[in-house]
Design a protein around this nucleic acid. Sequence first.
DNA 1: GATTATAATGAACAATTGTTCATTATAAAA
DNA 2: TTTTATAATGAACAATTGTTCATTATAATC
Lengths: 215, 215
Amino acid sequence: MSKVKRKPKRLVNKPLNRQKLIQATLDSIVDVGIENTSVTEILDKAKLSRGMINLHFDNKESLLLEALKFYTDIYNQTFYKQLESVKTASPAFKMQTMVAHDLDICVLNRDYVVIWYEFRGKARTNELYRQYTDTRYKRFRDTYYSICTELVKAEPLQGVSSKSIAHGLITMIEGMWIDFYLHSDSFKRSAAKKTFFIYLTALFPSQFTHKGALK
Amino acid sequence: MSKVKRKPKRLVNKPLNRQKLIQATLDSIVDVGIENTSVTEILDKAKLSRGMINLHFDNKESLLLEALKFYTDIYNQTFYKQLESVKTASPAFKMQTMVAHDLDICVLNRDYVVIWYEFRGKARTNELYRQYTDTRYKRFRDTYYSICTELVKAEPLQGVSSKSIAHGLITMIEGMWIDFYLHSDSFKRSAAKKTFFIYLTALFPSQFTHKGALK
DNA sequence: GATTATAATGAACAATTGTTCATTATAAAA
DNA sequence: TTTTATAATGAACAATTGTTCATTATAATC
């Protein structure tokens, strides 16, 4: 008789505590590194009891993967938002916008970069991590390749493929991130941007200027 | 009476087993990552008994540090040998030589790069590791800065500091290493070299050509 | 207020970590 | 050959790892 309906109950705090665990995991990675991020460490930070990780996630590994997923989503969202906003603009403006994004404080900040490299350090020996890090990397690379192709079309260079040029630029951005990761204290966002535009101007003098502005 | 002299004995195999442990540690880092490099893993690889790490080194941490030291010495030796060999050459030739070294298979190979990034991943939270990785990085950077200064002196660029140029080049080399680390299967040494020389030629057209040769 | 579904707890678990040290093996010196 | 110094062994250790699950707490429904 009373078997009419048993609806879900008490789901108010569950998603909240789930998110707490993800945040505590990311905090722990920043504080003590992914290597020393134990369940004890995470639960101390989240101020939750010992069984919570295995209640909300199957195991510690799943929690770490969800944290990585949550993290990469942030970058993807801002990256694509920027890309969308310059869809019809000139290639030079596209390049300027995307470089500005990748050197912006909302993406190139201490915590953010640390988390990225901690996860990617484990990606080599962890198939699942590699999936996420490689996907992000591919999108990032494809975007810059595409913009470089447009730049070369607008201003052809003799005997130089747009592929090679894109390769160099992508490599440089990656190097900038590493530079920030290693020396975030002395790293100067403006200097990085300037350096970047020196190289762009050397290759495409009719589309850029050293000062980072467009022609 | 018989207290005349007690000379050291049986020191034949000790250094040999010590080196075995260092090599097994590096092998383990390549195989399973520094995170999963346990004493059990190392000793299995070295085919030595359980107590050996604490006999030859104070503890596991010391062994890892000695392995890092052994590793960085290899790079430093070849790097300085090359640098010494071009001491009196033109800046362009110096640049060509050092880039060739840093993209050469004896330094840019799978095992070598993996070990480097595994250690550097831990360097952020490990003061001692950081000392070694930072020292190597500083030497590397100083060398390229110095060569760039010479290049700019030979061919001044208006409104562009040699510091910025060096910054870009160093950043690109670092990025090439990362690229190799992440995609050693598809990485093409020749393509990397070519890309590098495109940028050098764009900046210093009277000292380089796209083909990687000197003018 | 009583019932019920489930979120949260934390003691207990087996497995693995790095380290210790009494014991054994071995090569050089007496 | 005997003695001696020390290199090597591996069982035993305490500490820490991630996971389990019987118990308790709590909010929605009856």
